[in-house]
């Protein structure tokens, strides 16, 4: 089986996520982009598992999914709290902790 398209897709998704994290201001979008990057790496892991013919990559992908789910819970809660206090979900506004 030719795994190259999957890897390319994974790279494209990762790059989209990465650019999104670096350029978008809305916390929800940034969060979605982080998820995109996690899932791009999941795809890469699963693809390599298939390529090598063992389950190591798939196990790792499951771990990532579990951690990502937990992270979503915590992350969304934080975003909600910030939104409630500041009436904004812009990540640039929350910049008090600085020099």
């Amino acid at each position: 089986m030719n795994t190259e398209p999957y890897i390319i897709l994974s790279a494209i998704l990762f790059t989209i996520g990465c650019v999104g994290v670096l350029t978008r201001r809305n916390a929800i979008v940034v969060f979605m982009c982080v998820e995109l990057m996690l899932n791009a790496s999941n795809l890469a892991l699963v693809t390599f598992a298939k390529q090598h013919g063992n389950l190591d990559g798939q196990i790792a992908a499951f771990f990532v999914m579990v951690v990502a789910a937990a992270e979503v819970v915590v992350g969304l809660a934080i975003i909600m709290t910030i939104f409630r206090t500041r009436r904004s979900a812009s990540v640039d506004d929350a910049s008090l902790l600085k020099y």
């Binding site: 350029t23 640039d92 929350a94 910049s95 008090l96 902790l97 020099y99």
Partner: peptide, 17 residues
């Protein structure tokens, strides 16, 4: 050097990247 700590999450993300 403390100017690097500008409080913007995105610039921290850039340095991680």
């Amino acid at each position: 050097f403390r100017r690097v700590q500008n409080g913007f999450v995105r610039s921290y993300a850039l340095s991680v990247f």
